[in-house]
Design a protein around this nucleic acid. Structure first.
Length: 436
RNA sequence: GGAGAGAUGGCUGAGUGGUUUAAAGCGCACGCCUGGAAAGCGUGAAUAGGUCAAAAGCCUAUCGGGGGUUCGAAUCCCCCUCUCUCCGCCA
């Protein structure tokens, strides 16, 4: 049994649910009627079915008692009487299962409701800028793009990466590889030592239930890489490469009932992220902006509902801290209702300025999914009073690496083509400058 | 990959077709007892769904998951998943 949105909310406030879904602008509000209809039919059938089952249980018990008393004939008579009950029951059972399946599949397609504080809008053009740090870097020389810098400093070998895996993959070389590793280490240390996250290192492949749990299935199935052991085609669908560490990490406690005292839980994790990005602009062109595999340090929180939005703000601040320490100009935007992800109730994106691109790059997306994911994965916690509740689950990039790499080298490039390393990163890279 | 054993409540663990309403123990909560505690005694305690304005109550389902046999399944049959032991392979 999956509860995605609370079925009770749908029953009691269908107009509210429709209105909130409509704000997303994708037409999911039409699912509400289908769900309510199936739900009503289900309950009607259940009432009948359960009455019959109760009757059967009663008679079966009587038969048992008669058998015990060796009253075989009376028992046989009752058996005959009950036999056709079984047929009615299995018939109704099948009907209920069908209605259940219909209701659940419709409910799985319903996205989360936007929080009331989210700006109404249709697309990314309507996302309000919340705050800004630093300013666009100006150069008194002709600034290079990250592709030029990577080639000049031999940080990335684009051509050989394509030889290995096709377009959209990166081969980091020498200082490029070391910079990537230094950044990863820097991010993990920052979040574990200063922001109190517990580091975990999860599997990079997960079963479909994990994707469903965080709301990445069933909607975006074509974005993922399915893997098979050997060439066995029938293995496909058993495991998927993770598109983000959110997928395994948010599912760590699925189907558990946590103690209230265990909350809040803070996890951070480094993983590579694999994305099909079918048809997305940018894949197939050279560069690091949109690739099939990139590194990321992810932040996950499991918190009490009343703390959800305060924790959300803190998580954004944790991600912003990365860019502040690396002295990179960025702004924070709030995703409007029409631009939010499927599972999210409220999302802030952090976009970092990349001078060579002349544009902002999304390096972090911080979402409060409220109890949407917890319902899908049946994760609850027990309050002091013994009540089981769904926690809020939050996720945020802290941050995505390939694009951070781009912003860093484009921002801190020098006239001679070298990269000046920001002070906090030097202990990790063990140099203050990357030169050709 | 091969062979074998297993999966029962918070935990240990009994239960191989019918008053099992899942024994017993441990642990937990509350109460009695006590100067206070321990011991002892007693009580309570799973999850979901349905019914109800709501609660109580009642009903249904759940003994790893799914299906089957039966009037009736923790128990019998089939499939799957996972765990353990041994062997093989392997960083």
């Amino acid at each position: 049994m999956r509860r995605v949105l609370d079925i009770k909310l749908l029953r009691e406030k269908p107009d509210f649910v429709r209105e909130r879904l409509k704000a997303r602008g994708a037409g999911e509000e039409t699912l509400v009627d289908r769900i309510l209809q199936a739900d009503e039919q289900r309950r009607k059938l259940l009432a009948e079915l359960e009455t019959l089952k109760a009757q059967r249980n009663r008679v079966s018990k009587e038969i048992g008692a008669l058998m015990g008393q060796k009253k075989i004939e009376e028992a046989e008579a009752k058996k005959k009487e009950t036999r056709e009950l079984g047929d009615r029951i299995s018939e109704l059972d099948q009907k209920v299962a069908a209605v259940d399946a219909d209701r659940d599949s419709a409910m799985l397609q319903v996205p989360n409701l936007p929080h009331e504080s989210v700006a109404i809008g249709a697309s990314s053009a309507d996302n309000p800028v919340i705050r800004t740090f630093g300013e666009k870097k100006s150069f008194n020389f002709k600034a290079k793009t990250h592709v030029e810098l990577c080639e000049h400093l031999k940080l990335i070998d684009f051509a050989r990466a394509a030889k290995l895996s096709g377009s959209g993959f990166l081969l980091y070389t020498n200082w490029g590889a070391r910079l990537e590793r230094a950044l990863t280490q820097f991010l993990l240390d920052l979040h574990t030592l200063e922001h109190n996250y517990t580091e975990v290192s999860p599997p990079f492949m997960v079963g479909p239930h994990c994707l469903e749990g965080v709301g990445q299935f069933p909607k975006f199935k074509d974005q993922y890489y399915g893997v098979a052991e050997g060439d066995k085609a029938d293995e496909l669908g058993k495991l998927y490469l993770i598109p983000t560490a959110e997928t395994p990490v948010a599912n760590i406690h699925r189907e558990e009932i946590l103690k209230e005292s265990q909350l809040p839980i803070y996890y951070c994790a480094y993983t590579p992220c694999f994305r099909g990005e079918a048809g997305a602009a940018g894949v197939g062109t050279r560069g690091m902006i949109r690739v099939h595999q990139f590194d990321k340090v992810e932040l996950i929180k499991i918190v009490k509902p009343e703390d959800g939005y305060a924790e959300h703000e803190k998580m954004v601040a944790n991600a912003e801290r990365v860019l502040q320490l690396l002295d990179l100009h960025y702004h924070v935007v709030m995703l409007c209702t029409g631009d939010m992800g499927f599972a999210s109730a409220k999302t802030f994106d952090i976009e970092v300025w990349a001078p060579g691109q002349g544009s902002y790059l999304e390096v972090s997306s911080v979402s409060n999914c409220e109890d949407f994911q917890a319902r899908r994965m049946n994760l609850r916690y027990k309050t002091e009073t013994g009540e089981n509740r769904f926690p809020h689950i939050l996720n945020g990039s802290g941050t995505a690496l390939a694009r951070l790499f781009v912003a860093l080298i484009e921002t801190h490039q020098q006239e001679d083509g070298s990269i000046l390393i920001p002070e906090p990163l030097r202990p990790y890279l063990k140099t203050d400058r990357i030169t050709a």
